[in-house]
Amino acid sequence: MDAELTALAAAGATALVQQMVTEGWAQARDRVARFFSRDSGGDEDVLVGELEEARAEVVAAHDAGDSETTADVRTEWRSRLRRRLAADPAAAAELRALLDELAPDTDAGVPQGGGTYNHISGGVIHGTVIQAGSVGQLNTGDGRRP
């Protein structure tokens, strides 16, 4: 397999694992299942189940701070993508299109959307928690300005 397809498989696996902890997971899961089942005779429902199992592992690993398990899942899906591309090099165009959907290009370095995953732990939070792509002027309602 040439280096370009190997890199494409790695990028696909990375994007897939990143999507597993986002709100857009269901859409990504369905697109990836279609990608694997199309022209390969795979059962899409079985693939959805396998993707959900992988997601459960990644979410649990994320919550536990276990980067090794996340890397293992990424490696597994990279291998599966490599095998799919080796069996059908024409699938590379479809995988590129899928990657464009999962991680759209940015305009001037500002992401145009995407999923968010929040996890706050370590006790009770007594202050304001804010997550945003960018924050201009912020007023928390307590009369102070940041």
Rank of each mutant, 00 (worst) to 15 (best):
A3W: 08
E4R: 07
T6Q: 11
T6M: 12
T6L: 12
L8K: 02
A10W: 02
A11L: 10
A11D: 14
G12D: 08
G12N: 08
A13L: 01
A13F: 00
T14A: 09
A15H: 01
L16N: 04
V17P: 00
Q18V: 11
V21P: 00
V21Q: 03
E23H: 05
E23D: 15
W25Y: 15
A26Y: 01
Q27S: 13
A28K: 04
R29F: 03
D30M: 06
D30V: 05
R31K: 15
R31S: 14
A33C: 07
A33H: 06
S37I: 04
S37E: 02
D39R: 14
D39W: 07
S40C: 08
G41H: 01
E44M: 11
E44L: 12
D45K: 12
V46Y: 05
V46D: 14
L47H: 08
L47D: 11
L51N: 03
E57T: 06
A61M: 02
H62Y: 01
H62A: 14
H62R: 13
D63T: 09
A64R: 01
D66Y: 01
D72S: 11
V73E: 04
R74C: 11
E76G: 10
R80M: 08
L81A: 06
A87R: 14
D88K: 06
D88N: 10
P89H: 11
A92D: 02
E94A: 15
R96G: 10
L99E: 08
L99G: 12
D100L: 13
E101W: 01
A103H: 03
A103N: 12
A103R: 13
A103C: 05
G114C: 06
G115H: 00
T116P: 01
N118V: 15
S121M: 09
G123M: 05
V124C: 00
I125L: 15
G127K: 11
G127Y: 01
V129L: 12
I130N: 05
Q131N: 12
G133K: 06
G133L: 06
S134G: 05
G141T: 13
G143P: 04
R144S: 13
P146F: 12
